[in-house]
Nucleic acid binder design. Structure first.
Lengths: 197, 197
DNA sequence: AATAATACCATACGCTCGTATTGTTTGTCA
DNA sequence: TGACAAACAATACGAGCGTATGGTATTATT
Protein backbone atom coordinates (compact mmCIF):
# COMPACT_ATOMS: atom_id res chain seq x y z
CA UNK A 1 0.00 0.00 0.00
CA UNK A 2 1.43 3.35 -1.08
CA UNK A 3 2.41 5.78 1.60
CA UNK A 4 0.35 8.86 2.25
CA UNK A 5 1.47 12.44 2.62
CA UNK A 6 0.76 14.16 5.91
CA UNK A 7 -2.22 15.95 4.46
CA UNK A 8 -3.61 12.87 2.81
CA UNK A 9 -3.34 11.02 6.11
CA UNK A 10 -5.19 13.85 7.83
CA UNK A 11 -8.00 13.62 5.32
CA UNK A 12 -8.23 9.86 5.79
CA UNK A 13 -8.19 10.26 9.58
CA UNK A 14 -10.98 12.79 9.39
CA UNK A 15 -13.08 10.41 7.33
CA UNK A 16 -12.48 7.65 9.87
CA UNK A 17 -13.37 9.85 12.81
CA UNK A 18 -16.40 11.17 11.04
CA UNK A 19 -17.56 7.63 10.41
CA UNK A 20 -17.05 6.54 14.01
CA UNK A 21 -18.95 9.57 15.24
CA UNK A 22 -21.79 9.68 12.75
CA UNK A 23 -21.86 6.13 11.38
CA UNK A 24 -22.13 7.52 7.87
CA UNK A 25 -19.34 8.62 5.60
CA UNK A 26 -18.90 12.36 5.06
CA UNK A 27 -19.86 14.04 1.80
CA UNK A 28 -17.23 15.75 -0.30
CA UNK A 29 -18.44 19.10 0.90
CA UNK A 30 -18.27 18.08 4.55
CA UNK A 31 -14.63 17.15 4.07
CA UNK A 32 -14.00 20.44 2.27
CA UNK A 33 -15.62 22.37 5.10
CA UNK A 34 -13.50 20.60 7.72
CA UNK A 35 -10.25 21.58 5.98
CA UNK A 36 -11.54 24.95 4.79
CA UNK A 37 -10.82 24.14 1.17
CA UNK A 38 -13.04 23.87 -1.88
CA UNK A 39 -14.45 20.67 -3.27
CA UNK A 40 -11.96 20.48 -6.14
CA UNK A 41 -8.99 19.43 -4.03
CA UNK A 42 -11.20 17.06 -2.04
CA UNK A 43 -11.95 15.25 -5.26
CA UNK A 44 -8.21 15.04 -5.79
CA UNK A 45 -7.74 13.57 -2.31
CA UNK A 46 -10.42 10.99 -2.81
CA UNK A 47 -8.92 10.00 -6.15
CA UNK A 48 -5.50 9.65 -4.53
CA UNK A 49 -6.81 7.70 -1.53
CA UNK A 50 -8.57 5.39 -3.94
CA UNK A 51 -5.58 4.99 -6.19
CA UNK A 52 -3.36 4.21 -3.21
CA UNK A 53 -5.83 1.64 -1.97
CA UNK A 54 -7.23 3.15 1.19
CA UNK A 55 -10.74 3.89 0.02
CA UNK A 56 -13.36 2.68 -2.35
CA UNK A 57 -16.07 4.88 -3.75
CA UNK A 58 -19.47 4.00 -5.10
CA UNK A 59 -20.18 6.05 -8.18
CA UNK A 60 -22.77 8.76 -7.78
CA UNK A 61 -23.84 7.51 -4.36
CA UNK A 62 -24.13 10.15 -1.68
CA UNK A 63 -21.92 9.17 1.27
CA UNK A 64 -20.80 6.24 -0.84
CA UNK A 65 -17.23 6.05 0.39
CA UNK A 66 -15.94 2.80 1.87
CA UNK A 67 -12.80 1.91 3.74
CA UNK A 68 -10.88 -0.59 1.68
CA UNK A 69 -9.99 -2.82 4.61
CA UNK A 70 -12.65 -2.10 7.16
CA UNK A 71 -14.92 -5.05 7.07
CA UNK A 72 -18.63 -4.73 7.36
CA UNK A 73 -20.83 -5.96 10.14
CA UNK A 74 -23.89 -8.00 9.54
CA UNK A 75 -26.73 -8.72 11.93
CA UNK A 76 -26.98 -12.29 13.23
CA UNK A 77 -30.28 -13.13 14.92
CA UNK A 78 -30.19 -14.45 18.47
CA UNK A 79 -32.58 -17.38 18.18
CA UNK A 80 -32.60 -18.71 21.70
CA UNK A 81 -30.51 -20.21 24.39
CA UNK A 82 -28.98 -23.61 24.93
CA UNK A 83 -29.82 -24.53 28.48
CA UNK A 84 -27.58 -26.67 30.66
CA UNK A 85 -26.17 -28.44 27.63
CA UNK A 86 -29.47 -30.08 26.98
CA UNK A 87 -32.37 -28.22 25.45
CA UNK A 88 -32.87 -25.18 23.29
CA UNK A 89 -35.26 -22.43 24.27
CA UNK A 90 -36.45 -19.98 21.70
CA UNK A 91 -36.03 -16.35 22.66
CA UNK A 92 -39.22 -14.30 22.65
CA UNK A 93 -37.88 -11.18 21.08
CA UNK A 94 -36.81 -12.38 17.67
CA UNK A 95 -35.65 -8.85 16.94
CA UNK A 96 -32.50 -9.36 18.95
CA UNK A 97 -29.35 -9.30 16.92
CA UNK A 98 -25.66 -9.43 17.48
CA UNK A 99 -23.53 -7.69 14.90
CA UNK A 100 -20.66 -9.73 13.61
CA UNK A 101 -17.81 -8.89 11.31
CA UNK A 102 -18.43 -10.30 7.85
CA UNK A 103 -14.83 -11.52 7.85
CA UNK A 104 -15.97 -14.01 10.44
CA UNK A 105 -19.34 -15.02 9.04
CA UNK A 106 -17.97 -15.09 5.49
CA UNK A 107 -21.48 -14.59 4.17
CA UNK A 108 -22.52 -17.88 5.67
CA UNK A 109 -25.95 -18.26 7.15
CA UNK A 110 -25.60 -17.90 10.88
CA UNK A 111 -27.56 -17.61 14.06
CA UNK A 112 -26.61 -16.92 17.63
CA UNK A 113 -27.48 -18.54 20.94
CA UNK A 114 -27.08 -17.63 24.57
CA UNK A 115 -25.24 -20.27 26.57
CA UNK A 116 -26.79 -21.64 29.73
CA UNK A 117 -25.18 -24.23 31.91
CA UNK A 118 -21.72 -25.63 32.27
CA UNK A 119 -21.46 -28.53 29.88
CA UNK A 120 -18.66 -26.90 27.88
CA UNK A 121 -16.95 -25.04 30.69
CA UNK A 122 -13.56 -26.72 30.32
CA UNK A 123 -13.27 -25.44 26.74
CA UNK A 124 -13.92 -21.90 27.81
CA UNK A 125 -17.63 -21.69 27.02
CA UNK A 126 -19.49 -20.51 30.07
CA UNK A 127 -22.94 -19.39 31.16
CA UNK A 128 -24.00 -16.14 29.55
CA UNK A 129 -21.73 -16.36 26.53
CA UNK A 130 -23.18 -15.56 23.13
CA UNK A 131 -22.17 -18.11 20.54
CA UNK A 132 -22.45 -17.72 16.80
CA UNK A 133 -23.32 -20.81 14.80
CA UNK A 134 -22.78 -21.24 11.09
CA UNK A 135 -25.37 -23.42 9.41
CA UNK A 136 -23.28 -24.34 6.41
CA UNK A 137 -19.63 -24.44 7.48
CA UNK A 138 -18.02 -27.83 6.86
CA UNK A 139 -17.74 -29.94 10.00
CA UNK A 140 -14.71 -31.98 10.88
CA UNK A 141 -13.66 -34.01 13.87
CA UNK A 142 -13.12 -31.96 16.99
CA UNK A 143 -15.41 -29.12 15.95
CA UNK A 144 -17.89 -27.80 18.46
CA UNK A 145 -21.43 -28.06 17.13
CA UNK A 146 -25.01 -27.46 18.14
CA UNK A 147 -26.94 -30.67 17.59
CA UNK A 148 -30.59 -31.66 17.88
CA UNK A 149 -31.15 -34.90 19.76
CA UNK A 150 -34.81 -35.83 19.50
CA UNK A 151 -36.44 -32.64 20.80
CA UNK A 152 -33.39 -31.28 22.55
CA UNK A 153 -30.46 -29.21 21.38
CA UNK A 154 -27.03 -29.21 22.92
CA UNK A 155 -23.54 -27.89 22.46
CA UNK A 156 -21.23 -30.82 21.86
CA UNK A 157 -17.88 -31.77 20.44
CA UNK A 158 -18.36 -33.65 17.19
CA UNK A 159 -16.29 -36.69 16.28
CA UNK A 160 -16.85 -39.36 13.69
CA UNK A 161 -14.65 -42.34 14.38
CA UNK A 162 -14.80 -45.22 11.93
CA UNK A 163 -18.28 -44.23 10.81
CA UNK A 164 -19.65 -43.77 14.29
CA UNK A 165 -20.64 -40.31 15.50
CA UNK A 166 -19.81 -39.32 19.06
CA UNK A 167 -21.13 -36.15 20.64
CA UNK A 168 -19.30 -35.30 23.85
CA UNK A 169 -19.22 -32.51 26.38
CA UNK A 170 -15.92 -31.31 27.68
CA UNK A 171 -17.32 -31.31 31.20
CA UNK A 172 -16.80 -34.89 32.41
CA UNK A 173 -20.02 -34.69 34.41
CA UNK A 174 -21.85 -35.19 31.11
CA UNK A 175 -21.14 -38.54 29.44
CA UNK A 176 -20.59 -38.78 25.68
CA UNK A 177 -23.53 -39.65 23.49
CA UNK A 178 -23.62 -42.06 20.57
CA UNK A 179 -26.81 -40.82 18.98
CA UNK A 180 -29.07 -42.77 16.67
CA UNK A 181 -31.23 -39.83 15.71
CA UNK A 182 -29.52 -36.49 15.54
CA UNK A 183 -29.21 -33.41 13.38
CA UNK A 184 -26.34 -30.98 13.46
CA UNK A 185 -27.76 -27.45 13.39
CA UNK A 186 -24.42 -25.84 12.82
CA UNK A 187 -20.90 -25.29 13.89
CA UNK A 188 -19.51 -22.85 16.42
CA UNK A 189 -17.52 -20.11 14.71
CA UNK A 190 -17.49 -17.22 17.14
CA UNK A 191 -17.95 -16.42 20.78
CA UNK A 192 -18.68 -13.16 22.58
CA UNK A 193 -18.62 -12.54 26.29
CA UNK A 194 -19.47 -9.35 28.10
CA UNK A 195 -18.24 -8.84 31.64
CA UNK A 196 -20.84 -6.69 33.28
CA UNK A 197 -19.91 -4.28 36.02
CA UNK B 1 -41.18 -2.41 21.48
CA UNK B 2 -44.40 -2.15 19.48
CA UNK B 3 -45.16 -4.91 17.05
CA UNK B 4 -44.88 -4.34 13.34
CA UNK B 5 -47.36 -5.13 10.60
CA UNK B 6 -46.26 -7.55 7.90
CA UNK B 7 -45.56 -4.72 5.49
CA UNK B 8 -43.69 -2.66 8.06
CA UNK B 9 -41.54 -5.67 8.84
CA UNK B 10 -40.82 -6.12 5.17
CA UNK B 11 -39.70 -2.53 4.87
CA UNK B 12 -37.44 -2.91 7.91
CA UNK B 13 -36.03 -6.15 6.52
CA UNK B 14 -35.30 -4.48 3.22
CA UNK B 15 -33.43 -1.69 4.96
CA UNK B 16 -31.38 -4.24 6.89
CA UNK B 17 -30.57 -6.25 3.81
CA UNK B 18 -29.72 -3.14 1.87
CA UNK B 19 -27.36 -2.08 4.63
CA UNK B 20 -25.66 -5.45 4.79
CA UNK B 21 -25.22 -5.47 1.04
CA UNK B 22 -24.21 -1.87 0.43
CA UNK B 23 -23.00 -0.75 3.86
CA UNK B 24 -25.00 2.42 3.50
CA UNK B 25 -28.61 2.95 4.36
CA UNK B 26 -31.05 3.28 1.45
CA UNK B 27 -32.59 6.61 0.49
CA UNK B 28 -36.34 7.09 0.72
CA UNK B 29 -36.60 6.78 -3.03
CA UNK B 30 -34.62 3.55 -3.10
CA UNK B 31 -37.09 2.05 -0.64
CA UNK B 32 -39.99 3.35 -2.71
CA UNK B 33 -38.53 1.81 -5.86
CA UNK B 34 -38.11 -1.56 -4.16
CA UNK B 35 -41.76 -1.74 -3.14
CA UNK B 36 -43.02 0.05 -6.26
CA UNK B 37 -44.72 2.74 -4.24
CA UNK B 38 -44.28 6.50 -4.10
CA UNK B 39 -42.20 8.32 -1.54
CA UNK B 40 -45.21 9.49 0.47
CA UNK B 41 -45.96 6.11 2.05
CA UNK B 42 -42.26 5.50 2.59
CA UNK B 43 -42.18 8.60 4.73
CA UNK B 44 -45.10 7.11 6.63
CA UNK B 45 -43.20 3.86 7.13
CA UNK B 46 -40.11 5.60 8.37
CA UNK B 47 -42.18 7.66 10.77
CA UNK B 48 -43.86 4.52 12.08
CA UNK B 49 -40.61 2.58 12.39
CA UNK B 50 -39.19 5.50 14.30
CA UNK B 51 -42.21 5.86 16.53
CA UNK B 52 -42.19 2.16 17.30
CA UNK B 53 -38.52 2.34 18.17
CA UNK B 54 -36.85 0.40 15.38
CA UNK B 55 -35.11 3.21 13.59
CA UNK B 56 -33.57 6.58 14.18
CA UNK B 57 -33.21 9.19 11.53
CA UNK B 58 -30.80 12.05 11.23
CA UNK B 59 -32.62 15.14 10.02
CA UNK B 60 -31.88 16.18 6.48
CA UNK B 61 -28.97 13.78 6.15
CA UNK B 62 -28.91 11.69 3.01
CA UNK B 63 -28.83 8.01 3.97
CA UNK B 64 -29.10 9.17 7.56
CA UNK B 65 -31.16 6.27 8.89
CA UNK B 66 -29.87 4.29 11.84
CA UNK B 67 -30.99 1.08 13.45
CA UNK B 68 -32.17 1.91 16.94
CA UNK B 69 -30.55 -1.10 18.53
CA UNK B 70 -27.56 -1.37 16.30
CA UNK B 71 -25.04 0.46 18.26
CA UNK B 72 -22.01 1.93 16.68
CA UNK B 73 -18.66 0.30 16.62
CA UNK B 74 -15.50 1.98 17.66
CA UNK B 75 -12.00 0.77 16.96
CA UNK B 76 -10.05 -0.53 19.97
CA UNK B 77 -6.32 -0.91 19.37
CA UNK B 78 -4.76 -4.33 19.95
CA UNK B 79 -1.71 -3.38 21.97
CA UNK B 80 -0.07 -6.72 22.50
CA UNK B 81 -0.47 -10.10 24.06
CA UNK B 82 -0.39 -11.39 27.59
CA UNK B 83 1.82 -14.43 27.55
CA UNK B 84 1.32 -17.38 29.87
CA UNK B 85 -0.21 -15.19 32.52
CA UNK B 86 3.06 -13.48 33.07
CA UNK B 87 4.40 -10.88 30.72
CA UNK B 88 3.03 -8.50 28.14
CA UNK B 89 4.45 -8.33 24.64
CA UNK B 90 3.73 -5.37 22.45
CA UNK B 91 2.34 -6.18 19.03
CA UNK B 92 4.31 -4.89 16.08
CA UNK B 93 1.45 -3.72 13.95
CA UNK B 94 -0.10 -0.98 16.04
CA UNK B 95 -2.63 -0.46 13.27
CA UNK B 96 -4.50 -3.55 14.33
CA UNK B 97 -7.92 -2.85 15.68
CA UNK B 98 -10.88 -4.79 16.89
CA UNK B 99 -14.22 -3.09 16.43
CA UNK B 100 -16.32 -3.11 19.56
CA UNK B 101 -19.86 -2.06 20.18
CA UNK B 102 -19.96 1.31 21.90
CA UNK B 103 -22.61 -0.10 24.24
CA UNK B 104 -19.84 -2.22 25.68
CA UNK B 105 -17.02 0.28 25.80
CA UNK B 106 -19.37 3.04 27.02
CA UNK B 107 -16.92 5.61 25.67
CA UNK B 108 -14.33 4.39 28.11
CA UNK B 109 -10.73 4.30 27.08
CA UNK B 110 -9.95 0.75 26.11
CA UNK B 111 -7.32 -1.44 24.59
CA UNK B 112 -7.26 -5.05 23.54
CA UNK B 113 -4.83 -7.91 24.13
CA UNK B 114 -4.35 -11.35 22.72
CA UNK B 115 -4.33 -14.07 25.36
CA UNK B 116 -1.46 -16.50 25.51
CA UNK B 117 -1.23 -19.31 27.99
CA UNK B 118 -3.60 -21.02 30.34
CA UNK B 119 -3.52 -19.09 33.59
CA UNK B 120 -7.21 -18.18 33.36
CA UNK B 121 -8.49 -21.27 31.62
CA UNK B 122 -10.93 -22.32 34.36
CA UNK B 123 -12.81 -19.02 33.97
CA UNK B 124 -13.21 -19.52 30.25
CA UNK B 125 -10.29 -17.40 29.03
CA UNK B 126 -8.13 -19.46 26.73
CA UNK B 127 -5.19 -19.11 24.36
CA UNK B 128 -5.99 -17.01 21.33
CA UNK B 129 -8.85 -15.07 22.86
CA UNK B 130 -8.98 -11.33 22.32
CA UNK B 131 -9.74 -9.48 25.53
CA UNK B 132 -10.84 -5.89 25.80
CA UNK B 133 -9.59 -3.92 28.78
CA UNK B 134 -11.10 -0.70 30.07
CA UNK B 135 -8.59 1.66 31.61
CA UNK B 136 -11.05 3.59 33.72
CA UNK B 137 -13.83 1.24 34.77
CA UNK B 138 -14.20 0.96 38.55
CA UNK B 139 -12.66 -2.18 39.99
CA UNK B 140 -14.28 -4.27 42.68
CA UNK B 141 -13.46 -7.58 44.29
CA UNK B 142 -13.70 -10.52 41.95
CA UNK B 143 -13.06 -8.51 38.80
CA UNK B 144 -10.57 -9.80 36.28
CA UNK B 145 -7.83 -7.27 35.67
CA UNK B 146 -4.61 -6.84 33.76
CA UNK B 147 -1.93 -5.83 36.24
CA UNK B 148 1.70 -4.79 35.97
CA UNK B 149 3.98 -6.56 38.40
CA UNK B 150 7.42 -5.02 38.17
CA UNK B 151 8.11 -5.38 34.45
CA UNK B 152 5.51 -8.04 33.80
CA UNK B 153 1.81 -7.90 33.03
CA UNK B 154 -0.67 -10.61 33.83
CA UNK B 155 -4.36 -11.41 33.80
CA UNK B 156 -5.46 -11.92 37.36
CA UNK B 157 -8.50 -11.92 39.59
CA UNK B 158 -8.44 -8.86 41.80
CA UNK B 159 -9.42 -9.02 45.46
CA UNK B 160 -8.80 -6.60 48.29
CA UNK B 161 -9.40 -8.28 51.62
CA UNK B 162 -9.00 -6.16 54.74
CA UNK B 163 -6.70 -3.75 52.94
CA UNK B 164 -4.54 -6.43 51.40
CA UNK B 165 -4.55 -6.92 47.62
CA UNK B 166 -4.49 -10.46 46.24
CA UNK B 167 -3.99 -11.20 42.56
CA UNK B 168 -4.85 -14.78 41.74
CA UNK B 169 -5.10 -16.96 38.67
CA UNK B 170 -8.02 -19.29 38.36
CA UNK B 171 -5.67 -22.03 37.23
CA UNK B 172 -4.42 -23.58 40.48
CA UNK B 173 -1.04 -24.24 38.85
CA UNK B 174 -0.31 -20.53 39.40
CA UNK B 175 -0.24 -19.51 43.04
CA UNK B 176 -1.85 -16.25 44.19
CA UNK B 177 0.32 -13.18 44.51
CA UNK B 178 0.30 -10.63 47.30
CA UNK B 179 2.13 -7.90 45.44
CA UNK B 180 4.05 -5.03 47.01
CA UNK B 181 4.55 -3.13 43.75
CA UNK B 182 1.78 -3.39 41.23
CA UNK B 183 -0.30 -1.28 38.91
CA UNK B 184 -3.66 -2.25 37.53
CA UNK B 185 -3.72 -1.42 33.82
CA UNK B 186 -7.43 -2.01 33.49
CA UNK B 187 -10.36 -4.28 33.89
CA UNK B 188 -11.65 -6.97 31.59
CA UNK B 189 -14.95 -5.94 30.02
CA UNK B 190 -15.24 -8.02 26.88
CA UNK B 191 -13.97 -11.15 25.25
CA UNK B 192 -13.95 -12.33 21.65
CA UNK B 193 -13.03 -15.73 20.36
CA UNK B 194 -12.90 -16.88 16.77
CA UNK B 195 -13.03 -20.58 16.01
CA UNK B 196 -11.01 -21.02 12.89
CA UNK B 197 -11.93 -23.96 10.77
C1' DA C 1 15.72 22.53 -16.83
C1' DA C 2 11.85 19.68 -17.53
C1' DT C 3 8.35 16.81 -15.71
C1' DA C 4 5.21 15.16 -12.56
C1' DA C 5 2.69 15.07 -8.39
C1' DT C 6 0.52 17.67 -4.85
C1' DA C 7 -2.51 21.09 -3.21
C1' DC C 8 -5.36 24.34 -4.05
C1' DC C 9 -9.49 27.94 -6.45
C1' DA C 10 -13.65 28.85 -9.01
C1' DT C 11 -17.71 27.72 -11.19
C1' DA C 12 -21.33 25.34 -13.46
C1' DC C 13 -24.66 21.37 -14.56
C1' DG C 14 -28.20 18.44 -13.65
C1' DC C 15 -29.85 15.22 -10.76
C1' DT C 16 -31.20 13.42 -6.32
C1' DC C 17 -32.19 14.22 -1.80
C1' DG C 18 -35.24 15.03 2.37
C1' DT C 19 -39.23 17.60 3.39
C1' DA C 20 -43.86 19.09 3.09
C1' DT C 21 -48.68 19.02 1.89
C1' DT C 22 -53.13 17.28 0.50
C1' DG C 23 -55.87 13.68 -0.46
C1' DT C 24 -57.95 8.59 -1.16
C1' DT C 25 -58.98 3.88 0.18
C1' DT C 26 -59.26 0.13 3.17
C1' DG C 27 -59.52 -2.22 7.33
C1' DT C 28 -59.97 -2.49 12.42
C1' DC C 29 -61.82 -1.69 16.74
C1' DA C 30 -64.65 0.46 20.24
C1' DT D 1 -71.40 4.03 13.16
C1' DG D 2 -67.62 6.68 13.91
C1' DA D 3 -62.75 7.24 14.75
C1' DC D 4 -58.38 5.97 13.78
C1' DA D 5 -54.39 3.77 11.80
C1' DA D 6 -52.36 1.90 7.78
C1' DA D 7 -51.18 2.13 3.10
C1' DC D 8 -51.09 4.43 -0.71
C1' DA D 9 -50.87 8.67 -4.87
C1' DA D 10 -49.36 12.99 -6.58
C1' DT D 11 -46.70 16.90 -6.68
C1' DA D 12 -43.82 20.79 -5.44
C1' DC D 13 -39.65 23.13 -3.22
C1' DG D 14 -35.12 24.22 -2.29
C1' DA D 15 -30.98 22.57 -0.74
C1' DG D 16 -27.30 19.50 -1.30
C1' DC D 17 -25.11 16.16 -3.99
C1' DG D 18 -21.46 14.05 -7.18
C1' DT D 19 -19.38 15.29 -11.36
C1' DA D 20 -16.84 17.92 -14.63
C1' DT D 21 -13.78 21.41 -16.45
C1' DG D 22 -10.10 24.52 -16.44
C1' DG D 23 -7.19 26.83 -14.06
C1' DT D 24 -2.69 28.34 -10.61
C1' DA D 25 1.17 27.75 -7.31
C1' DT D 26 4.35 24.90 -4.99
C1' DT D 27 7.30 21.19 -4.29
C1' DA D 28 9.72 17.00 -5.51
C1' DT D 29 11.94 14.07 -8.79
C1' DT D 30 14.47 13.09 -12.88
Amino acid sequence: MDKLTVKQQKVLDFIKNFYVEHSVMPTIREIAAKFKITIGPVQDYLDILQRKGYLNKKDAVTRGLEFANMSKFSPVPILGSVHAGTFLEPVENAQDYVYINTDVTRSRECFALKVRGDSMEPSGIVEGDTIVISKDAPITNGDIVVAMLKEEAAIKVYNKISGKVVLSSTNPAYPPIYPKDYKVLGKLIYLLREYKN
